[in-house]
């Protein structure tokens, strides 16, 4: 008798637990207010990343095509995975002093881990994060970027 009742109580509790679980899913099924799915390519215009989102390293240029990078190479030494290469030239100023200016600031997006050490340690705040995330390409070489725009120069008052 004991095992007999146990058998049927088990069946009863089994059904009960299943129904409890299904009531949860059923509730979500009938409450469209809880839809969480983002329609990514359709909502592309509206989709905004958080302002601190780290999508891509950029070097902001102002309207005169000037940036703030002195070419000191601190970002290069601080980068843990060697995704930044700074190639700088030495030029002679009219007053005879030698000055280092940046030739190319190469950034390997393919290797970047977005740890933000370059942006944080940059003494002249020349680097910043961009919020773009659509980087997928067919060719890996496209992921190596030169951050300073052609013909750009450094803003005057930065040393």
């Amino acid at each position: 008798m004991n095992s007999f009742t146990k058998y049927f109580t088990d069946i009863f509790w089994g059904f009960r637990s299943l129904l409890i679980g299904m009531s949860v899913t059923g509730r979500y099924f009938f409450s469209p207010g809880q839809i969480v799915t983002q329609q990514y390519p359709e909502n592309r215009k509206k989709l905004k990343m958080f302002e601190r989102f780290k999508g891509d390293l950029i070097m902001p240029h102002d309207e005169h095509n000037q940036h703030r990078c002195t070419g000191c190479g601190i970002c290069e030494t601080n980068c843990p995975n060697g995704s930044i290469e700074v190639i700088s030239d030495r030029i002679e100023l009219p007053d005879g002093k030698k000055k280092r200016i940046i030739d190319k600031h190469i950034y390997h997006l393919s290797m970047c881990t977005f740890c933000s050490l370059c942006v944080k340690t940059c003494p002249s705040e020349a680097l910043d994060w961009d919020q773009t995330f659509e980087h997928a390409v067919f060719d890996r070489t496209k992921l190596t970027k030169i951050l300073n725009k052609p013909g750009s120069s450094i803003i005057k008052d930065i040393e």
Binding site: F50, R52, K54
Partner: peptide, 24 residues
């Protein structure tokens, strides 16, 4: 997480002595 320090999974947010930047 993403609002405060810009990444979802791997943050590198702590630095020795404190945080990379203040929370949002």
């Amino acid at each position: 997480f993403e609002e405060s320090f810009g990444s979802r999974l791997l943050h590198s947010y702590y630095t020795p002595g404190g945080l990379m930047r203040d929370v949002h």
